[in-house]
């Protein structure tokens, strides 16, 4: 194995009415009771102009904005080729949140109108697709289902991608929502430059992802 080191260049976490990034913390003035209100407020606050956002399901909205916060502060598209940027996401509820919405449109034979736009979001990996479309990412992408935030999986698979593919940077993490319980934790991983030893960035490891994840959890 090569001696190449990897770092967490940036990260963002969104959890129950709160957004946390390195050195920044945002809690809206209002205490929003629903995810819908919260995520809309965040979208407005960040002045993201992307009308497709409103068409996304909640899982995609959450992952999309979390990625947006990262790439806004740390753009990668100019620095790397589309094919060199990879993305690995995971969660535990898959697309259940949207599955239930879609199910409502087919369960009653007397008002049976399956919604095509809801159905397309009954796949968990559509959120990776949305992030790729927005940021012109054409590298590897995968979506895993794990019981809980699994930093070992992210590290193992992330390293595999760096070592076996011509990948330069990776967005990885956790995007989970079920009804009003939501949580996103995304990390931007890059190769450590030789002359940057002793820099401030946390090392790309399961441990440092856990530290960040659990610190903000509580």
């Amino acid at each position: 194995m090569s001696g190449q080191q990897y770092q967490i260049s940036y990260w963002c976490m969104i959890r129950q009415n709160r957004v946390v990034m390195p050195g920044r913390d945002w809690v809206p003035n209002e205490n929003f009771l629903t995810f819908t209100e919260f995520i809309k407020a965040l979208y407005k606050k960040e002045q993201v102009s992307y009308p497709k956002f409103y068409k996304m399901d909640n899982l995609s909205k959450l992952g999309f904005l979390c990625a947006e916060m990262i790439f806004k502060n740390n753009p990668v598209t100019g620095r790397y080729k589309s094919e060199e940027i990879g993305i690995i996401l995971s969660n535990s509820s898959s697309s259940l949140d949207t599955d239930l919405d879609y199910y409502k449109t087919i369960k009653d034979p007397s008002s049976y109108f399956p919604s095509p736009s809801v159905f397309v979001y009954t796949l968990p990996n559509i959120v990776t697709g949305e992030i790729c479309i927005r940021n012109r990412i054409k590298g590897e992408n995968a979506f895993f289902i794990s019981e809980k935030f699994n930093s070992e999986l992210l590290e193992t698979y992330g390293r595999l991608l760096f070592e076996s593919q011509h990948m330069q940077t990776l967005l990885c993490g956790w995007v989970e929502i079920l009804k009003e319980k939501y949580e996103a934790a995304l990390f931007l991983i890059e190769k450590k430059k030789d002359n940057e030893t002793g820099n401030e960035f946390p090392e790309f490891s399961a441990r440092s992802m856990n530290t960040l994840y659990y610190k903000i959890n509580n």
């Binding site: 094919e83 697709g129 949305e130 790729c132 479309i133 990412i137 054409k138 590298g139 590897e140």
Partner: peptide, 17 residues
């Protein structure tokens, strides 16, 4: 493996992915 980054469900006409 590659991501097409084109549309949620449709393939791009030139099949870049």
């Amino acid at each position: 493996n590659a991501c097409e980054a084109f549309h949620q469900t449709a393939s791009s006409p030139d099949g870049i992915g």
